[in-house]
């Protein structure tokens, strides 16, 4: 089953075209990686999925993006509901300047002010493996955590809202090797329940975590397929050059 279907998507920043006729199918309940050199449009594509890219008034889009079968550019779509279902984790961990507990509770508090939050917070922190370490200091500031814990917290923050899709934009580029591995293992566990799309500049990471992989270049999707196949037996010469490290 596909969770994201993109057809003929063009996107411009002012006069610069960042996405060219992109058409992709992204499957539910697995990890999909978007790879490619800097400026290839992979982050831009990711940021269209919850329409955060359109905060910039210079951005213009054309084409179709359907999430769970629903066209997200149609005027009836509420950005609030869309972003609740499609959460995003950023390159630099960005915990809110409030306590650990309130960070995780924040989503519920803004969407459903009257729901009790305690159980949901415990469940989310357990799911990302933070509960045991942090249960006795839930009310200290989230910004004092180590970077890896902050990034786990940023993932945990999405879970109480029961999102359909989790988008991650180079989530490990601020982390060391060990923390990167830990986050990757976490993503592997979460993929049983959530559809995950990850943008990464590290081919090794894409290969370790993803089931399917899209290779992008200059705003176009050059090739996609099961990760193992794309890495061992690329059909397009450009993909082969990129994964062999000849450019990018």
């Amino acid at each position: 089953m596909n969770c994201i279907e993109v057809d003929g998507l063009n996107l411009w920043y002012g006069a610069f075209q960042a996405l060219r006729k992109v058409s992709v199918r992204i499957r539910a309940r697995q990890i999909t990686a978007l790879i490619g050199p800097s400026g290839c449009g992979k982050s831009t594509l990711l940021r269209t999925f919850n329409r955060i890219s359109q905060r910039d008034p210079a951005v213009r889009v054309e084409g179709s993006v359907r999430i769970l079968g629903e066209e997200i550019f149609s005027p009836e779509v509420s950005l609030i509901a869309l972003r609740r279902a499609v959460g995003m984790v950023f390159q630099r961990p960005n915990p809110l300047p409030i306590s650990i507990f309130e960070n995780v509770a924040f989503g519920l508090r803004i969407h459903e002010p009257d729901t009790p939050v305690d159980a949901a917070v415990e469940e989310a922190l357990t799911a990302v493996g933070l509960w045991e370490d942090l249960r006795f200091r839930l009310h200290s500031p989230a910004t004092e955590l180590a970077l890896e814990q902050q990034q786990r917290l940023c993932i945990a923050r999405l879970l109480p809202l029961k999102p359909e899709i989790i988008l991650l934009d180079e989530p490990c580029s601020a982390l060391d090797a060990q923390a990167t591995l830990a986050i990757e293992q976490l993503l592997g566990r979460l993929a049983a329940e959530y559809s995950i799309v990850i943008v990464t500049h590290s081919m090794a990471q894409a290969r370790r975590v993803s089931a399917e992989c899209f290779f992008m270049l200059l705003g176009e999707v050059v090739e996609h397929g099961p990760t193992e196949q794309l890495f061992t037996n690329p059909r397009d010469a450009r993909t082969g050059d990129y994964i062999a490290g000849r450019f990018g």
Binding site: I52, I80, G87, F90, L96, P97, F106, G107, R109, L161
Partner: peptide, 25 residues
């Protein structure tokens, strides 16, 4: 700005972001 983005990405409205995140800080 990253505080605002984090909040918007959770589906908070501008007012919720202003009231809970931006103004207190």
């Amino acid at each position: 700005q990253s505080f605002r983005e984090a909040s918007w990405n959770l589906g908070a409205t501008r007012w919720q972001t202003t009231r809970h995140i931006v103004l207190p800080n």
